[in-house]
Amino acid sequence: MSSIHFFEKGQGQPLILIHGFCEIGAMWKDFSEALSSDFRVICPDLPGVGKSTLDQESLSMEEIAVILESWMEENQIDQPIVIGHSLGGYVTLALAELMGTKLKAIGLFHSTAFPDSQEKKEMRDRTVIFLEKHGVEKFVSSFVPPLFPENRRAELDGEIQLAIEQAKECSLQGLIALTKAMRDRKDRFEVLTNFQGPKLMIAGELDGAVPLEASKKHQDIVSSYIELSNTGHMGMVEQKAETIEILRSFCKAV
């Protein structure tokens, strides 16, 4: 099992924001401050990341979901809205499969219900090899910048450097385990289709990690589908004010 570290702000309807790969819960700080006037915003570190421990060699999406369900029970988090960025979206769908109507609504933020392609699986394997050989710091320094569109990297340099520093708070064991969990995750398109609560999807026009054409295939099975123009994989940074208001509007409607 793992011990989940988190921070929370505000009261009322629980809203869980789940970070992506090479990210920590603190990435949501500005979102938690902006949304805490309306919601109880809760931001966990996934196992092996930030201040959350990982007491096992490997992880699956299903195991992460079980760990988070227990964490919710321990902290009286009932009927939450759960929104996940990238890897956090994969975790959100695993939670939806596990918990069903115990979740009030879900959202995928630059994420997908589809499994990895064979090409992507091979890329994950190369990531594991690189991590084992070079460690966390060298990996995140090369991994994080391409998540942002090339034409905005100079403008967003401060935000990119902060993202790299936060990524360094991931453990080597955690990054390797999460890489393998992403590689081995199953297709959850049917889970998303069958989820009974409201469903949000935010896609980036320039997202290199989750291509727009893949995101469009979810359009007919979610309640609210939004494309961010001139935006890569990090809409919460690239279009912070806009995406905060998208989440506020979705969650208030819920």
Results as ranks from 00 to 15, higher is better:
Val222Ser: 08
Arg124Leu: 06
Ile164Arg: 06
Ala214Asp: 15
Ser142Gln: 12
Pro145Thr: 02
Ser60His: 08
Ile24Met: 00
Ile81Arg: 11
Gly100Met: 05
Glu245Val: 03
Lys121Val: 09
Ile42Ala: 06
Pro211Phe: 10
Thr112Phe: 09
Asn75Tyr: 05
Lys9Ser: 13
Ala177Phe: 02
Ile221Gln: 15
Phe250Tyr: 04
Ile129Trp: 01
Leu156Pro: 08
Val136Cys: 03
Phe114Arg: 14
Lys121Asn: 11
Thr231Gln: 04
Ile77Pro: 00
Ser111Cys: 02
Val66Pro: 00
Ala163Pro: 09
Pro115Glu: 12
Lys240His: 12
Cys170Phe: 03
Gly84Phe: 03
Lys120Thr: 01
Glu8Phe: 08
Ser52Thr: 09
Gly174Tyr: 05
His134Gln: 10
Ala96Lys: 00
Leu228Ser: 10
Cys22His: 05
Ile77Leu: 02
Met27Asp: 11
Ser224Phe: 06
Leu156Ala: 09
Leu178Trp: 01
Leu54Trp: 03
Ser117Cys: 10
Met61Ala: 04
Lys199Phe: 03
Lys133Val: 01
Glu73Asp: 14
Leu200Thr: 07
Gly135Tyr: 07
Met182Lys: 01
Gln196Cys: 13
Gly197Leu: 03
Phe139Cys: 03
Ala214Met: 15
Glu190Leu: 04
Gln166Ala: 06
Phe195Met: 01
Gln173Phe: 00
Val41Gly: 11
Ile42Gln: 07
Gln76Trp: 09
Ala163Trp: 07
Lys51Met: 13
Glu62Tyr: 02
Phe130Pro: 00
Leu98Tyr: 05
Cys22Met: 12
Lys29Met: 10
Glu132Phe: 00
Glu238His: 05
Glu73Thr: 14
Gly88Arg: 06
Val210Asp: 02
Ser37Asn: 15
Ile81Tyr: 05
Phe250Ile: 04
Gly50Ala: 05
Thr127Arg: 07
Glu97Tyr: 04
Met27Phe: 04
Glu205Tyr: 01
Ala203Asn: 10
Arg124Met: 03
